[in-house]
């Protein structure tokens, strides 16, 4: 069983702390590293992939330090965020070169298998710079998978993919996770993480804010109070009616309309139209006022 262990890892750049005292162990299966932009996800991934020394603490892949140790790449694959590929090569040439660089006993077979996994076999003989963003991304994943690594680290792998490619990539990560590989991918989009991974590590401002099963984190995120600003044909009457609803925890009436606090996002958004319809009130505007990811994360950190 191959694990990635971080113990009390910190990384700072000058006075700026990018990663602050993070301890985590990643085991087989898919783990999502979730956090807003600038939270330190990439810094953390680079330390795991041996491209950055921790300022303090230890990063170990299968028991060996990742920094200044190229032999970790025998068991680790990295798909970096920067979408850089040798555009003058075809996908086949590129993945085959990667297989040869790994000194695999049968590089052709390995390249064929990897390209098959990402469903790029049909387009493999075209130059990479003629590919769409999604195809290029899949080619890079094939290159990172060519040696069938125990650990695969992906930095924002779904960026620039269309929904179909996204699903396909999610499927692939699932398969690899189910096969006992340790897969870690980063994302700033909750829904992506939810669909792929069983385990989630949430980092906010360089700190590990939450960690564990995605359902419990999802519950923490959805069961927090939500604030909506509502504007209708009769705000006062709507306020009275809404106060009678279990999903509403508070209503504030002001000149600009209503500010409604709801305990449960889903129930409230279903209740509001029913109440308005029953009262004969026309709802002109409903705005969730704290839906930015940052507010979700800051709520998580506070709880």
């Amino acid at each position: 069983m191959t694990t990635v262990e971080l113990s009390n890892v910190s990384r700072w750049y000058g006075n700026v702390v990018a990663v602050n005292d993070i301890t985590m162990t990643l085991g087989p299966g898919v783990t999502g590293l979730l956090g807003p932009n600038g939270a330190g996800k990439t810094t953390l991934l680079h330390m795991m992939a041996g491209f950055l020394p921790p300022s303090r603490g230890e990063v170990r892949v299968a028991g060996a330090p990742a920094w200044r140790n190229p032999s970790v790449y025998r068991i680790l694959g990295l798909v970096s965020e920067r979408e850089a590929v040798h555009g003058f090569l075809t996908a086949w040439e590129f993945v085959l070169a990667n297989a040869k660089l790994h000194r695999l006993p049968n590089p052709e077979a390995a390249a064929r298998r990897a390209l098959g996994l990402v469903e790029m076999t049909g387009a493999q003989d075209r130059r990479i710079d003629q590919y769409s963003k999604g195809m290029r991304q899949r080619t890079r994943v094939a290159a990172a998978l060519v040696h069938d690594p125990e650990v695969l680290v992906l930095d924002e792998p779904f960026n620039g993919m269309d929904p179909r490619q996204r699903l396909q990539m999610m499927d692939l990560l699932h398969q690899l996770g189910d096969a006992g590989r340790t897969i870690l991918f980063s994302s700033h989009i909750l829904e992506e993480v939810e669909q792929v991974s069983g385990t989630v590590q949430v980092i906010v401002a360089g700190r590990l804010a939450a960690s564990g099963d995605y359902r419990s984190i999802r519950r923490m995120m959805t069961h927090r109070p939500h604030v909506f600003s509502v504007h209708s044909s009769d705000d006062r009457r709507l306020a009275v009616a809404l106060m009678g609803q279990a999903s509403v925890t508070g209503v504030e009436l002001s000149g600009a309309g209503l500010t409604v606090q709801a305990g449960d996002y889903g129930t409230f958004t279903r209740t509001l139209p029913k109440v308005a319809l029953a009262e004969g009130i026309r709802v002109r505007r409903v705005l969730p006022s704290d839906e930015s990811l940052e507010s979700v994360f800051s709520y998580l950190v506070a709880s």
Partner: peptide, 15 residues
């Protein structure tokens, strides 16, 4: 500069 060096560096090759 363009980031493609990563593909060569993520290999278990002596530098």
């Amino acid at each position: 500069e363009d980031g493609t060096a990563v593909h060569i560096l993520t290999k278990p090759l002596p530098r």
